[in-house]
Nucleic acid binder design. Sequence first.
DNA 1: AAAGTTAGCACCATCGATTGCGCAAAACCC
DNA 2: GGGTTTTGCGCAATCGATGGTGCTAACTTT
Lengths: 349, 349
Amino acid sequence: MTMQGRKATIYDIAKLTGASPSTVSAALSGAWKARRISEQKVELIRRIAAEQGYSTNMQARGLRQAKSGLVGMIIPVHDNRYFASMSQSFEAFARDRDLVPVIASSMRDPMEERRIVETLISYAVDSIFIAGATDPGAITDLCAAANMRHVFVDLPGPGAPSVISDNYLGARMLTQTLLAGVQPRRNPARDRIYFIGGVATDYATARRIEGFRDVLTEAGLPPSPEQIIACGYPPKRAMQEIAALRDRLGDLPAGLFVNSLTAFEGVLGHFVHLPPGSFDRSIIGCYDYDPFAAYLQFPVHMVRQDSHRLIEEAYRLIEDPAPGITVREVEPALIPPRTIYAGPFGEHG
Amino acid sequence: MTMQGRKATIYDIAKLTGASPSTVSAALSGAWKARRISEQKVELIRRIAAEQGYSTNMQARGLRQAKSGLVGMIIPVHDNRYFASMSQSFEAFARDRDLVPVIASSMRDPMEERRIVETLISYAVDSIFIAGATDPGAITDLCAAANMRHVFVDLPGPGAPSVISDNYLGARMLTQTLLAGVQPRRNPARDRIYFIGGVATDYATARRIEGFRDVLTEAGLPPSPEQIIACGYPPKRAMQEIAALRDRLGDLPAGLFVNSLTAFEGVLGHFVHLPPGSFDRSIIGCYDYDPFAAYLQFPVHMVRQDSHRLIEEAYRLIEDPAPGITVREVEPALIPPRTIYAGPFGEHG
DNA sequence: AAAGTTAGCACCATCGATTGCGCAAAACCC
DNA sequence: GGGTTTTGCGCAATCGATGGTGCTAACTTT
């Protein structure tokens, strides 16, 4: 690696090898067979290029080929087990395809989401994966105008293929488990199972509420509106709401369906102040899985969404788009309390 | 947005407005004042460009300007609270600077790490942040050859500025806390505090072991080699090792210094099989923080590394490089058991 | 009114890699 | 040996945005 100021280009290599730039390009890009470059020359060029520490300028290649070798993904936040493991899978599949992943977080802000889509389009990414879209319509419009392939994950969009978790099924499973475990206490209000967290207008939350409601209704215990507290994702709100609920009931409810890990953090923030044993007569479930949450003071039933499969299916849909607009559902799994699950990467879940 | 097949370019806008491409470029890139383009024309161009859904082709701009507007970061894994929150901060700071973050995970594989650095160089990223480098020397070599600014985070590198957590201090604090909390049981072996997890040759682990060792030595209890079990990061190994340890001792040790969240997952995986109450006479600490881990069956003392400050300092070092090679240390904080910490983004920790 | 300024913009080369086309030399064919 | 095919490679245009240079018309100055 002779190091001058600037990076070597195919023109430098051309001079050094006595070949033309186009020959160098072909030799190094792999197109040399089609261009009938002799293997000898290719060897020479490769050797010199390696010596010079040459590497393709992807901006130039991208400009010429009108694509970049990048794949974009938007997630609400990095700092969340569910989305983080989605990132991990997204990257693994990208690597398999020799693509470079660009992952940005929208903080669940529709404006930010649109800005990111525009940015990704500017960079001519191959395709865009949008997880937890807050404004799928706007995204599809932007992408359509730029002729950009995209797929929605976790929350469906009307104008593009989507891969989502079977939230209805997951909610049913979790609710059934809770229902089977409640300990009746003769107090009708306290005997109820409460649903907390999420945004009622979000597709995922709506489906989960449906599942929750249906199971309870089928059991002859149709939930009152008061039982469904969709107070958003931030822990803080959930903490306040659970405190308020406990105030109202005079105790914890018999069952609690927590709709996200972040809401669960908030619930825990409240539980911290309760004496031990406070939870013995309540059964807790959480939609989404965290290995540590699985081993708290009290048993927690969790639903693990298969983010790996979600991403896998999303790549499938992007790569050979079915006619029409597909929505594919992936089944989540119920994880019993005190279970450590090892994910697809061995190290994490 | 009139949608044809292809995206609009400055040439299209030029035709539509009767201006020249260079005028369009100047108008849209903000350089129009310096180029004395009339405000009128700029308005017109802006309007038409918006109508056409124009957006700058960043590959072309990048090629011309020899930079891309991207910043790269390498982390070991996404799916880890510590690194995920680093990603979140990295992205936030990038956004402040109008840069697009590209975050890739190396899976702690030196080869992969180098491949990623080469890729990022190919894309002409502005600078590269490397967290948890496994082969910092090779990275610095690659970057030097390409004249690429880079900074090491979390683990220092010899050839570039580094920002690291004060692992020695953190380990001292945690060890002291554990030491203060051990309940002597008259069995010398069981009364010891054990260190588990991490790789002894890793810089961070080495420093923590130093801190651990020093505190114990100062207390007149110098640790035997057997007390330090640096069995790597994957949960599985930690699970086996803790099981073996318990076999050897006939019980859990009086204190346990767990060196990472992933190792802690493994430890938990073993604890799952123990009867409740097994932990009452042990005191547990973990280097790294997780809100759920903070609220387990038993109290856990945790060390929270300030990933936000780490990244902030790293940007500082990249942006005005001090003469010579700087290593900056950021203090971690001790988080008492049962504490929910709200991070810089409100939603997570 | 001639000379000098300035405003407002267009022209064109350039960044590095790719690719359609063409051309000379070598190899092959009858 | 003349014609045909194949081999091996170079030439030059191209992708879209940028920026140095220059040119014209309007305006100012003396």
